[in-house]
Simulated assay, not measured.
Amino acid sequence: MNTIGRTATFAVGLALVFGASLGIGHAVGPVGGESADAHADHGMESSADPMGSGDTVPGGLQISEHGYTLVPPSEPLPAGKKTDFRFRITGPDGKPVTRYTQSHGKDLHFIVARSDLSGFQHVHPELAADGTWSVPLTFRSAGSYRVFTDFVPAGGSGLTLGADVSVAGDYRPTPLPAPSHTAHVDGYTVTLSGDATAGAASMLTLSVAKNGRPVTDLQPYLGAYGHLVALRQGDLAYLHVHPQGAPGDGTTPPGPGITFHAEFPSATAYRLYLDFQHQGKVHTAEFTVRAAASHTGSGSGSDADMPEHGGHDH
């Protein structure tokens, strides 16, 4: 996983800067019969970024970087059926990578989302001796999905590689839910406070409650009380941040609030996915936010009367 340092104060932001975008089609129609397209290797630089503010290619938009390549399945996958999803990471020598450095307790983190930002999953595959990763996955509906591999090769730096895979069937896109400050999942209510501002450090706090009572006994998950992924609408550029502080540091309480610092590179919509663990189970709360241009001084573009929507669990 890309290692993003935990900050000690509110003044320091965690960020992965997004760069060039790669669009994904959303047309309704049959999917399948062709090998899944994956994003080409763009290298580390981009000349003109139509959506972002940097000249660095962001995580998740490249299938290959620094000699490491994600090799996903080439055949279309079934919808609604559990599949043994297998893939490899090859190294600069062209051979499958078999040695990794753990980051946040795992050798590799695997993220899945459909091109319309639905169907989010965060799982942890198993590595075989020959360098093949495998994980049981169910793709709930047809369409084009982006898969992300977040890892640190032994002796190397953290990388996030991404590729598109096809799930056969009739693709019917799900509209992006409207921005909201509240999400409901499995009897929990998660409230988002703070503004998402493009091109500036944004502090976001997500507070967890159950049955109307604040949850103050969150359990560590991947070395923190919360795990946040953000994907940008359109190109699914990937931002992965961790909260301020850490369990056991003497200053970070186990809820109800989990505070993150992040930088949103462009004034557009993002989907946030918060994983948190309570009473031995991991839940995922989902939010849509719209980052406002920094000169406006406005926030996420969401109002108190915006509709609420839910999340899902693993």
Rank of each mutant, 00 (worst) to 15 (best):
Val185Thr: 03
Pro243Gln: 09
Ala27Glu: 14
Pro78Ile: 02
Leu117Trp: 00
Ala154Leu: 12
Leu176Val: 03
Pro136Lys: 04
Ala292Val: 14
Tyr188Met: 13
Ser134His: 14
Gly250Pro: 03
Gly143Trp: 09
Val28Tyr: 01
Ser103Trp: 02
Gly234Cys: 00
Tyr188Val: 11
Thr216Phe: 00
Ala200Val: 11
Leu108Phe: 08
Asn211Phe: 08
Ser74Lys: 13
Ala196Leu: 11
Asp249Thr: 02
Gly245Val: 00
Thr197Cys: 06
Ala246Thr: 09
His240Glu: 03
His314Asn: 14
Gly29Met: 02
Tyr145Phe: 15
Ser103Thr: 05
Val229Gln: 05
Gly54Trp: 12
Pro214Cys: 05
Ser103Asp: 12
Leu117Gln: 09
His278Phe: 00
Tyr171Lys: 01
Met51Gln: 07
Tyr145Cys: 04
Glu286Asn: 13
Thr101Gln: 10
Gly212Pro: 08
Ala20Asp: 07
Ala36Val: 00
Leu231Asp: 05
Pro72Leu: 06
Thr252Val: 11
Gly23Asp: 05
Pro78Val: 03
Thr268Trp: 03
Gly54Ile: 04
Ser144Tyr: 10
Tyr145His: 10
Gly169Ser: 01
Val215Ile: 08
His295Trp: 14
Phe264His: 04
Glu34Ala: 09
Thr205Gln: 04
Gly234Ile: 01
His309Asp: 09
Phe10Arg: 11
Asp235Arg: 06
Thr197Tyr: 02
Phe120Lys: 07
Gln102His: 08
Thr284Pro: 01
Pro78Gln: 05
Glu45Cys: 11
Gly156Ala: 15
His39Pro: 00
Gly91Asn: 01
Pro173Trp: 12
Pro136Trp: 04
Gly310Ser: 05
His278Glu: 01
Leu228Ile: 01
Lys281Asp: 09
Asn211Ala: 14
Gln233Tyr: 13
Gly155Ile: 09
Arg290Trp: 09
Ala230Gln: 12
Thr98Val: 14
Ile111Thr: 13
Leu159Ile: 06
Asp130Cys: 02
Ala304Trp: 13
Ser134Ala: 14
Gln277Ala: 12
Gly19His: 02
Tyr273Phe: 15
Pro179Ser: 03
His122Asn: 09
Pro179His: 10
Pro173Gln: 06
His283Ala: 07
Pro256Met: 00
Pro214Asp: 05
Arg88Met: 11
Arg140Gly: 07
Asp55Ser: 05
Gly223Ser: 13
Leu159Met: 07
Val123Glu: 12
His283Val: 06
Gly297Val: 12
Ser141Glu: 15
His314Gly: 14
Val152Cys: 00
Gly250His: 02
Ala11Gln: 10
Asp275His: 10
Ser298Leu: 15
Asp37Asn: 08
Asp235Val: 00
His261Arg: 12
Glu286Met: 15
Gly248Val: 10
